[in-house]
Amino acid sequence: MSTDTVETIRTTVPVGAQYAPGSLLDWSEALVPGDIVLDERVAPNAPWSAVVRAGDVLTIVDVGGNQSADCLMFNAHDTSERYSVPDTLTWQGNAYVREGTVLRSGLGRPLMTVVGNEIDRQDTIGGACSKESNTLRYGHHTAYQHGCRENFLAEASRHGLTSRDLVSNLNWFMNVPVEADGALGIVDGLSAPGRRVAIRADMDVLVIVSNCPQMNNPCNEFNPTPLRMIVTRNEDTVR
């Protein structure tokens, strides 16, 4: 999970996306202050997961700027209840995620709420990249490149979850406009190094994140960078 890991071995595994040396990084700090109960760095391209307790706030820092953090959420005590894009959008009557957006499950219940947001809008339409969809979007030569679905599946398997448990997800710091004629796609991002989003858990939530390793579109500015995940707790907000 640490970006400080030094690679000491030589490997013949083809290099995935790597962030450009000298990239401006801003590690920032928690958007909602409180006692820090977790503070972890997610390496470029890597998955991450944690259970965020009800009332705790997860700050995600876009350390290098315009780095998509693909995100899935589950009720930590019954993972058949999970994040639902349509419930989230329908309930708020808007296609974009912003401060105040309640991230709902397929049962319509709040999983988490966006309590802080430093970019114009967040995406939950664009879904996750995968090795398989890469072959559709860019050609078969990309079949062995990395994808978020691999990260999701690998991290989900650590929690007993499988492909049946993956649903449409949320992409922090990614930009997917829907234009007037219906054109939709991933375009240059609206974020910058150190920008943050803060989401409060409304129940105990298992959060799974893929730090997107895509090499073929601007969801990470073609330069995958680290993320910082900070969970803070305020006793008066703990449920």
Binding site: P14, R137, G139, H141, G185, N216, N217, P218
Partner: peptide, 17 residues
């Protein structure tokens, strides 16, 4: 962005189906 994606379609790799 669509044009950028489609321009990659004929690329090849040492490992691919």
């Amino acid at each position: 962005a669509r044009a950028d994606a489609r321009a990659q379609g004929s690329n090849v790799s040492d490992w691919m189906p």
